[in-house]
Design a binder for these strands. Structure first.
Lengths: 370, 370
DNA sequence: TTGTACGCGTTATCAT
DNA sequence: ATGATAACGCGTACAA
């Protein structure tokens, strides 16, 4: 009657009145603080609380206010997810998203999206990121892009105690869930070498940040050459891939034409190790348009197995690496939840296996073909 | 010195002390409450506040706590987005997401994802949905799926005052941003009729909910027939599409085989109006595998222009309707923002134009071909 | 026009 | 050892 909305507002005070104690005692009792509450008292209070139907979550705001003072971070039941501004151009991010949501939704966690881009400031992100409204942050952007933001986040009070999980990219200071990039490179290169390919074109970021997946893949390529008794330096051709420039779809086509030029100049190259499926598809399209048949004239492999390259029968022809993207999303979310609940205290790195998917975009080079 | 984290915590009290008033007066002054504060006092307080570098957002929690009593909802700078559990199977949802994010991100709004499914309860959603932590909710699920949830949401205190925007589907009681479904149907049917097609197969939900897009499209099909002086009842063949069962990818293939059977039985059918691109692609794949060439033997049209059906040259062959999905996402988010800021008070319905994209999956039927 | 009291849960501090 | 008190922050109903 006091207020038109005070229908079922059972507060600590309500319980305290019934029990003849103060709300502080009730708070301690309900939080199981045996150091400061008599066990019998606690039982009595808990009984009364459940009888009255007290709902601790109902006054989340008051709890937030009070918890700011403490050392214990409050549970928001929300996890942040930083994704590229161009996430919709591929199926890559949405697969990660799906994996994370699968794990978070059953626990009634929400996933809060924020755009990520080069040189982003904390102030550019949604307010939720600066208000300690997130229990953890998931990210799938390279270290170079994350670095300035991480710096700001760790300066923020409250954020040193919120776990951060990096997907696909390994980032120091964060937990990471990554595919076995080196194995991916190894499997692709070995597949092509066994078919008889020698000279191959690969890509690397133009600014060579450390720990970049493409560097790890390169290590895998080289390993495959050495294992075959070949000197990788004699065969691996390299083109700088302007990773940090966030290529748009149009840019990808013009870059694919540059690749075509490169292939025209270097006739000995018989295979291309594309940086990811989407680009492999565009490259195959451009090659076809210029009369270069794939795989008869040139073999092309992709990477993530998320964007199919279909033939007229609707079949995916792209030889690529199955990246366990959905599993990366799942594990990243699971890891975040465990760190939130302190089941996992240290930062962890999870390495997930990859496998080769042999399809029709690769075949022995012309010189080896009968 | 009082606390190790009280570095730059300027509160209302800090300002009040400097100005020789109470914090209540400061609160009123900073909120521009001219009814209760002398204009001169207000100016003085505002000056002092900015001198001290008072940051109103810093104590968001206290504000939340206090605002619960009032009639004015607090600004969370977060918008909810309900999406299907299978959103990752198509590009449909991610395009809507992208549109919404484009508008929300520059305003530092976060987008909070929650899974939506048949017979969902409010208690199944992330906590943020029940804690009044969202300023608005965007949804892209049919009314039948939303109905029970809407009921719960509107019972919730606080939620009657939060706007709700439905995308693609028109939902009574919500603002809606929808493509012109009827025009879409009209354009597709007219295109096929002009090519000479008469008997066509279309799909409708098996439970026939009102206001369903497929019903509107059907109205468009019929309009095209009548405009051509034809009786639609003589030509339109119908198959129930189990919309509410949330078909998985595997189910889609088996359903596509059912469609194949239907076509085998009804030889007079020369065109299929698929419910959306993804299914059109699967259908074309199945048809090709069974020796039915598209479009020579049978024409197929899609709907949303989000999932391409590629030939061996990487060209999309699917004749379809360009649905302005990204624009729907943008407008829905923009509309939500306007309703949040009370620039728009009533629920609004925005109808966005569609256009036909003629590609290679349609051609005149055999009987008309020379 | 301005001030007082209150709501809300937790914790540091003080009293027994 | 156990329990009570005050403080945190803001906005609002009510009093002066």
């Amino acid at each position: 009657m006091s207020s038109q909305r005070t229908t079922s507002t059972v507060t600590l005070q309500t319980i305290a009145d019934r029990c003849g104690v103060t709300k502080v005692t009730v708070s301690r009792a309900l939080n199981g603080n045996l150091q400061h509450v008599n066990k019998a008292t606690m039982e009595r209070i808990k009984t009364v609380a459940s009888e009255l139907g007290y709902n601790p979550g109902a006054n989340h705001d008051a709890r937030r206010l009070a918890m700011r003072k403490g050392t214990q971070p409050i549970l928001n039941h929300t996890v942040g997810f930083l994704l590229s501004e161009r996430f919709y151009e591929t199926n890559y991010y949405q697969t990660l998203l799906q994996g994370a949501l699968e794990v978070l939704a059953p626990k009634h966690y929400g996933l809060l999206l924020g755009y990520m881009y080069q040189n982003i400031q904390l102030a550019d992100l949604p307010y939720a990121f600066r208000r300690d409204q997130l229990d953890a942050i998931l990210t799938c952007r390279p270290e170079s892009e994350m670095k300035p933001l991480l710096k700001e986040l760790f300066v923020q009070r409250n954020f040193t105690r919120r776990p951060m999980v990096s997907m696909v990219y390994r980032i120091p200071g964060c937990s990471s869930v990554i595919p076995d990039h080196q194995m991916a490179g190894y499997l692709l290169a070995r597949h092509l070498i066994l078919q008889g390919h020698r000279h191959m074109l690969h890509f690397a970021p133009d600014d060579f940040p450390l720990l970049h997946p493409l560097d790890l893949r390169l290590a895998g390529y080289r390993q495959a050459y050495r294992e075959a008794g070949l000197n990788p330096d004699l065969y691996l051709e390299y083109m700088p891939y302007p990773y940090s420039q966030q290529l748009q779809c149009d840019d990808l086509y013009s870059y694919a034409r540059e690749v075509l030029n490169k292939l025209d100049k270097c006739a000995k190259i018989t295979a291309v190790l594309a940086p990811y499926d989407k680009f492999a598809g565009i490259l195959i399209e451009i090659l076809s348009k210029h009369g270069r048949r794939v795989p008869e004239d040139i073999s092309v492999v992709g990477l993530d197995n998320t964007d199919p390259v279909l033939n007229q029968h609707g079949e995916n022809i792209l030889t690529t690496i199955q990246m366990p993207l959905i599993e990366i999303g799942r594990q990243a979310a699971g890891l975040a939840l465990r760190q939130i609940s302190h089941e996992e205290s240290e930062n962890v790195t999870v390495l997930l296996p990859v496998k080769l998917v042999e399809r029709a975009s690769t075949c022995p080079p012309r010189s080896v073909q009968t």
